[in-house]
């Protein structure tokens, strides 16, 4: 049995009410959903504003300046440039911040992606071949290793844009597409199960916390 305080009971009741407002969208758009939607958008926008201030501006700018570190002035200036969008004659300056941000991230991520998404995957595809053996007991692993190689090659052929998917290339690309679809099917099932568990969590919330809160507030 959950022990409730008045504050908790009020909080759970509002939470349950808003959950039902959002669920009412399953029937059709209605004033309750509109109310919850606008409340959600408004409060979340405000919440993120406060979060950004406390997690980014205060530790990285204000506290740094207080400690005598003035290097953050550079990103601050780039950030202020973004606000120049409001001044038509200076709006071109706003692009500098975006260009800096995109350029730095592209340079930073290209190395990471090259290493993790290309080179390591290439190595992992080859790795099984050092122990490949078609003797009894190893045949399953051998087939698996060869299948991984074939699927990787077929997948790459599917995403090859320089030639039309016709003839032999088309056949390999089609095999790649089938493999992708099998993967997507498995992912779909897995993710749907995760979503169902979220729904169960929400229904349990309504059944336990929310219902208890209502009984508490009504004095039942």
């Amino acid at each position: 049995m959950i022990e409730l305080s008045l504050t908790q009971a009020i909080g759970y009741t509002i939470g349950g009410f808003l959950t039902l407002c959002i669920f009412s969208f399953l029937y059709k758009d209605n004033p309750l959903y509109k109310f919850a939607e606008h409340l959600f958008v408004g409060t979340s926008a405000a919440y993120w504003f406060v979060t950004f201030y406390h997690n980014i501006i205060r530790p990285n700018v204000i506290n740094q300046f207080k400690e005598g570190n003035y290097w953050p002035i550079i990103p601050v200036i780039l950030g202020i440039f973004m606000l120049f969008r409001l001044v038509p004659s200076l709006s071109v300056l706003s692009r500098m911040g975006i260009a800096f941000s995109v350029g730095v991230m592209a340079g930073y991520q290209i190395i990471r992606h090259l290493e993790t998404n290309i080179l390591r995957q290439m190595g992992a595809t080859m790795q099984g071949f050092d122990k490949i053996s078609f003797t009894a007991g190893n045949i399953g692993n051998a087939i698996n290793t060869i299948l991984i190689l074939l699927v990787v090659i077929a997948g790459l052929v599917y995403f090859f844009f320089s030639v039309e998917h016709e003839g032999a290339v088309g056949g390999v690309a089609k095999f790649g597409m089938w493999m992708l679809m099998i993967t997507f099917g498995a992912t779909f099932g897995y993710t749907v199960m995760a979503r169902i568990s979220l729904l169960i969590g929400r229904v349990l919330y309504l059944k336990e916390q929310w219902w208890l809160s209502i009984k508490y507030l009504l004095g039942i």
């Binding site: 758009d29 509109k34 919850a36 939607e37 959600f40 958008v41 409060t43 979340s44 926008a45 993120w48």
Partner: peptide, 13 residues
């Protein structure tokens, strides 16, 4: 809004 589901509820509406 920056919030994932706040953004979605707006677009759905």
């Amino acid at each position: 809004t920056n919030d994932q589901f706040g953004y979605v509820s707006h677009i759905d509406g």
